[in-house]
Amino acid sequence: MIQISNLGHKIGGTQILHDISTSFPKGKLTALIGPNGAGKSTLLRLVGRLEPLQQGAITVAGHDVARTPTADLARVMAILGQQTAVASRLRLCELVAFGRWPHHQGRPRPEDRTKVAQAIDAFALSKLKNRFLDEVSGGQAQRAHIAMAFAQDTEWLLLDEPLNNLDMAHARALMARLRDLVDRQGRSVGLVVHEINYAAAWADHVIAMKDGRIMAEGTPDDVLTEAVLSDLYDAPISVGRHKDRPLVLHHA
């Protein structure tokens, strides 16, 4: 479980998060939703120790994020922030292989090579694996980064807007892959998504945020309702059903 208590955060004098206490359940797929600027990414980045903690406490599977050495945390959780332009010229297979680095510190074992091969395979990168990062499309580079986090093979996997740049087929493939990770391997996943229907279709647990506060949390059926969503986005939103899951529509 990821336990977040009394978390506050300021960036340049502006309060981004207000006294947040919540948890990401173990063995579930948790989706963070909410309008732009709600603080979703900041929350995920704080959990993934990509930003220093200012106020409050976070534990990931019992490890205090503020005090546990970063190298140890890298074996408990993999985090992928939003991708910025990459200046590095690595081959995709080399990038994915770095996902195993927290486990072998430069001396890969056969098991590490297997995991890298599996990750390359799982994200359909076999044909691209010898291309350089600056020679593939944004979506392909994105998939390679996700494959790297996947190869890290940790109890927790945290992804900040992983669906950016991905077409519908690859987005669905990624969600199915994450689902499989949770259902069959007992891993836990947390991700920020913008397209709510991905949360509706695949998540176990949804946390809805607005203005640095948590508006609602619970199962997709509890959170993805017309009342909550219309309030969350300040826009009339209607919710139908499809295959026994909520279907969120913006053309009310």
């Binding site: 970063t70 190298a71 945390l73 074996r75 990038l95 680095w101």
Partner: peptide, 15 residues
């Protein structure tokens, strides 16, 4: 090489 990928990725990999 990992540092060249950016501070974010480097921290994620426990560097």
């Amino acid at each position: 090489a990992i540092l060249g990928l950016g501070e974010q990725v480097a921290t994620g990999l426990g560097l």
